[in-house]
Design a protein around this nucleic acid. Sequence first.
DNA 1: GTACTATGTGAGGACTGTCTCACTTTTTGA
DNA 2: TCAAAAAGTGAGACAGTCCTCACATAGTAC
Lengths: 208, 208
Amino acid sequence: MSSQNANGTARLPQGTRGRQKVALLLDTAAAVFAEQGFDAATMTEIAARAGASIGSLYQYFPTKEQVADALLQRFAEQLYQRMEALVEAAANWSAAELLERLYPALIQFRSDNPAFIILAEARSGPALAAMQIRARMRTYVQAILRQQAPERDEAELELLAVLVLQVMKTAAGLYAEPDLPQREQVLSELKTMLQDCLERRLYQRAGR
Amino acid sequence: MSSQNANGTARLPQGTRGRQKVALLLDTAAAVFAEQGFDAATMTEIAARAGASIGSLYQYFPTKEQVADALLQRFAEQLYQRMEALVEAAANWSAAELLERLYPALIQFRSDNPAFIILAEARSGPALAAMQIRARMRTYVQAILRQQAPERDEAELELLAVLVLQVMKTAAGLYAEPDLPQREQVLSELKTMLQDCLERRLYQRAGR
DNA sequence: GTACTATGTGAGGACTGTCTCACTTTTTGA
DNA sequence: TCAAAAAGTGAGACAGTCCTCACATAGTAC
């Protein structure tokens, strides 16, 4: 319940000054969310750390949710850009090379932007935005795989895309667990498993 | 900060009545945590739903954190019991059978007790309890694997245990994602991958 | 310089949630 | 039966957060 600011009117920044401020606010919010999580983070602290007043923050983001949404959106766009670059570059890669790039790219992104996963998964409710992001990521990976094996049907490619992303997620999660023994070995084994699977299902078994 | 109730004195239940009440409170807390998450859940609601007064709740759990800790503890004990049963039963299983049992056992437990993961991972901070649980789970899986291949050295067994648990976690996570296409196929492919890996590393490559 | 708009400010209202405490009711056990 | 111990109660003190609003300042066009 609650939904004051009923109109939901965020003043969108008109000049460069406003846009810079918004960027700064989002950066700060990212830091705070990353440290404290969505629920524990407070608007007051975000504003203070950004050197702004609460009022100022509320001008652009009438709700804490909207801060999170905007931030998530920005993260998503960055991610999409990188994925598009990968799709383009992946035209003439082998499955092995493919993983060699996808792996670090995704893991890097997650560890560079810790607030991303926090907002994407720690948000309550159905998390519509997060679902859309996942769906789109799937289409990117699927596109990459399609370039590898254009003759495969879409269902199979989709299956593999889901699988690849899921294993990536696991791999990224490994970095989060602080006490985990043999992190590196587990990671490389995971990669090997996935690679074998891809080669088996993409290149062999052609006729099925 | 904060830590009123400075002594931290939870009145521990003396008679059967008290123990039943505590059990009921924990059950209710589990439901509320599962629905709303740790932060959003309120002591007031837990008490109300359990048909108790807030005062009563606070007699046994002076803090929301302590409710969560106690609950997590209880979950952990249940899990340990099942794992111990598995270790015992696993003596004469193949790797394939092993996964055939571990898989549903762990997934089942998670979906039967949704509050478990919520408390285990959605808690802020270093989450010491969760780390201990993971470590102990590792020793169980490692024990199972050791029975399969006693001649393998511990490091290799540990590596595989970590890997198995990690893949399990992924698999369980798949059930949580609502929109995911081809869930079943992805799941079975994941299992196949893991199984291949186990057979390769447990039984073959004996010398090395 | 002046009128106008964009941007910034922070005290405080409204609300919610944790936790306390003086007190009542139930159970135990002699 | 009766007294002591255990368990239960709920109004409200207290603290913290979201968000508003009437006003102040900075920037811009003329």
